[in-house]
Write a protein that binds this DNA or RNA. Structure first.
Lengths: 115, 115
DNA sequence: TAATCTATTTAGTCTGTCTAAATAATAGCT
DNA sequence: AGCTATTATTTAGACAGACTAAATAGATTA
């Protein structure tokens, strides 16, 4: 098996991935992280130091909104921030998916497409 | 049409692309650049400030060797540096191709594979 | 001689991911 | 009460790689 994806190769595609998981339903940061790990079937190793800045970046860009979760005394830890994709975020997701496909086709022109 | 690829999305994949074009035959930097542009069919906009540092990086990593071109007074400009892929570079290219495919499959797990 | 073409080099910036640790708040145990 | 484990977020600082932009080089052509 290959190494999990991380680092430089993710550059610029993480935002689209985050938007994609939040497009299914709203979620707090830690759950976004778990969804990413789960959907990538162990192929992804993402650090908090990458995810939370990405969420912040998307929020300030108006692609996500965030609200504090209402108090739930059946769970531990600090109040979670629930992120929800905006209409602008959905448009950006579409665009990101197109860019992704374009990116893949261009790189494969050069390095040689898989069989 | 999509925008040409540049910037962050290239991160970490440029090295593999450069190795791929040099795997066909040796070439000087400017020709590497032209081959990349040609093979990407206009889908790539690469700057000298990205290519030459990449060549330097690959050379110091032992993936390429470089030699000064012999004098050819039928052309203008300074002596060109001819780059040639090494055995180590070829191995790295294979590895880069595998990493690329893994990367693509992981990202598509998350953002939704194309049809 | 100036302009143009081919080619390379390099100084400095920016962005995004990383490492690493601190902080928050509660549950469950002794 | 105090300790530890769990869940979750935040943040400081390092680092890599692509960027902008311009300087430099040498030969040809006008």
């Amino acid at each position: 098996m290959s190494e999990p994806i991380s680092g430089k190769s993710l550059h610029g595609h993480l935002d689209t991935m985050v938007l994609a998981v939040l497009d299914k339903s709203e979620a707090h940061g830690f759950e976004v992280w778990k969804r990413l790990e789960a959907q990538a079937k162990g192929g992804l190793k993402l650090k908090e130091g990458s995810l939370y800045p990405a969420l912040y970046r998307l929020e300030t860009a108006g692609l996500l909104t965030a609200r504090k979760e209402e108090d739930d005394s059946s769970r531990r830890g600090p109040r979670r921030r629930i992120y929800k994709i905006t209409r602008k975020g959905k448009r950006r997701l579409d665009q990101g998916r197109q860019e992704w496909q374009h990116f893949v086709s261009v790189v494969e022109c050069v390095i040689g497409a898989p069989a």
